[in-house]
């Protein structure tokens, strides 16, 4: 009998300590911060992206006279790199690392009747800005699920309109639309903690990552998510590459 009690007692203590450790992650200071870098690629032929008919608005047609605008759900660079993939740390960040907020203000522009960038990543609570460079009226209309705590809004931005500054309360992939130009389609990718978005070659770097073991998640609007485990050493760079398959 005795040994059983002892066993249970020891086990309970271990569980308790483990719980306490989870709640009270060690405090890390910014000094030893590392980063996570890598490349996101598409394996297989890039899916066909439909061309956009902008004839509803002659301004948009003119603004794109020297290019053939296409949908941007999947944008693949020369070497198979996937653009507009959002990378963030989905597990392993301490409460104090999550509490650290970036002071940069990401900018979402309406230019030549498309959104630039197509995907704007940001931290929960981070202020971002919506601008317009166009000489035609847009309305900027993100459509989050109100049950998450993110509330939809809808503001007009006629030519010369001042920027709109906002932030979001909860992590979510939020679709953004313009009702005036129904082809305009983009994303606010709201995540918790540090993040990065891939460039035209599929490369990314998540900066300001405290040393530790993490799960990195890559999100692409059409292909969904993938994860990888990394270990970041103080001042070091961990590597995580991802490959999405096109069907």
């Amino acid at each position: 009998m005795k040994t059983q009690y002892k066993f249970v007692a020891v086990l309970s203590t271990v569980v308790l300590i483990a719980c306490a450790a989870l709640v009270h992650m060690p405090q890390v200071n910014a000094a030893g911060e590392g980063k996570i870098t890598g490349t996101v690629k598409l394996d297989g032929p890039p899916p066909h992206m439909k061309g956009i008919d902008m004839s509803k608005d002659p301004y948009c047609v003119k603004a794109n006279a020297n290019s053939t605008p296409k949908m941007e759900n999947v944008v693949v660079g020369a070497s198979g790199g996937l653009e507009n993939v959002v990378l963030y740390i989905s597990e392993g960040l301490s409460a104090s690392a999550l509490a650290e907020k970036s002071t940069t203000i990401p900018v979402f522009d309406q230019k030549n009747c498309v959104y630039t960038p197509h995907v704007l990543a940001m931290d929960v609570g981070q202020t971002f800005k919506v601008e317009t460079s166009d000489q035609t009226a847009h309305n900027i209309h993100p459509n989050p699920n109100p049950m998450t705590g993110n509330i939809p809004w809808n503001q007009s931005q006629p030519p010369g309109a001042p920027p709109v500054e906002k932030s979001w309360k909860a992590p979510e992939w939020i679709e953004v639309k313009c009702n005036i130009h129904p082809w305009m389609h983009g994303w606010f990718a709201v995540v918790k903690g540090p993040y990065a978005t891939t460039d035209a070659n599929g490369n990314y770097t998540i900066n300001n990552v405290p040393p530790g073991n993490y799960t990195v998640t890559a999100w692409q609007e059409q292909f969904g998510t993938q994860t990888a485990k990394v270990a970041v050493a103080a001042g070091g760079a961990a590597k995580a590459d991802f490959t999405f398959k096109s069907k």
Partner: peptide, 14 residues
């Protein structure tokens, strides 16, 4: 104020 839930936007800033 706009009609939320519809395409009718707010013009308060403009």
């Amino acid at each position: 104020t706009g009609l939320d839930g519809t395409p009718m936007p707010s013009f308060a800033d403009n």
